[in-house]
Design a protein around this nucleic acid. Structure first.
Lengths: 122, 122
DNA sequence: CTAAAACCTGACGCTGACGTCAGCTGCAAG
DNA sequence: CTTGCAGCTGACGTCAGCGTCAGGTTTTAG
């Protein structure tokens, strides 16, 4: 597969794929003309990269995770890093739910008019 | 209260407070020397700002939310904006939980050794 | 064979929420 | 009075994940 097809199938831009290569997240063979050739598994790998990015992992950590998966073994250092990220994700989910509740407060004051009084305390 | 105390009590930097003023999220009186003077309520307001930022709202939207709270009324346009943000938050939480599950996969392969086989499909 | 896609490598631009430095002023303490 | 921290206003730096040209090559369709 060439880069355009991988981009289409994985839903990211061609630029992003080249960026991933720069960051050593994704490698590709080259044909005689210098164009990148990807195996079919690249599509899933890209989707995984996107998911990890969506979780706020920096490319450095994504690289470590992928290295762990590729080698089939996870170093203790990576393990600590992963559990730390997992905990961070849990906190972030809590933050999001808190903010969500705040938004609902504001939304509710409109739907139920009257002396609009959003709880702003602590 | 002067800016340093607000920063300490709300857990953000002095720079951030001045930035909030630039963005019209937070106003302050000035003393004769030009220094900012904040009411006690500023601390709670700053925490609210932080929570909304943590949810990924851009300062433009935060400004609208604060305006809505300050005036006690929410315009239909803001309401649409808020529900859109709320839906975005819901999607983001889902993404985070998905990524969290992936991290758990990787973590699990280590704790239970063997032919390490993380599900990377779709 | 030729035109049009698709691909290539740089390299600069963008966005947002601040960090940080420079150079100056205000203010409370000894 | 003076020392020294706290505050002030610009204004440029940062970082990440790409977007977007520019200018040239390779592949594909007709």
């Amino acid at each position: 597969m060439r880069i355009g097809e991988v981009a289409a199938k994985s839903g990211v831009s061609v630029r992003a794929l080249r960026y991933y290569e720069e960051q050593h997240l994704l490698t590709a063979r080259r044909n005689s003309g210098g164009q990148r050739l990807y195996p079919d598994t690249a599509v899933t790998r890209v989707r995984l990269i996107q998911q990890l990015y969506a979780a706020g992992l920096p490319s450095r950590t994504v690289r470590q995770v992928l290295a762990g998966i590729d080698s089939g073994k996870v170093t203790p250092a990576l393990l600590r890093s992963l559990t730390a990220e997992r905990d961070r994700i849990d906190r972030q989910v809590q933050d999001l739910l808190t903010a969500r509740a705040r938004l609902d407060d504001v939304i509710a004051t409109t739907e139920r008019p009257g002396p609009g009084c959003v709880h702003v305390d602590a």
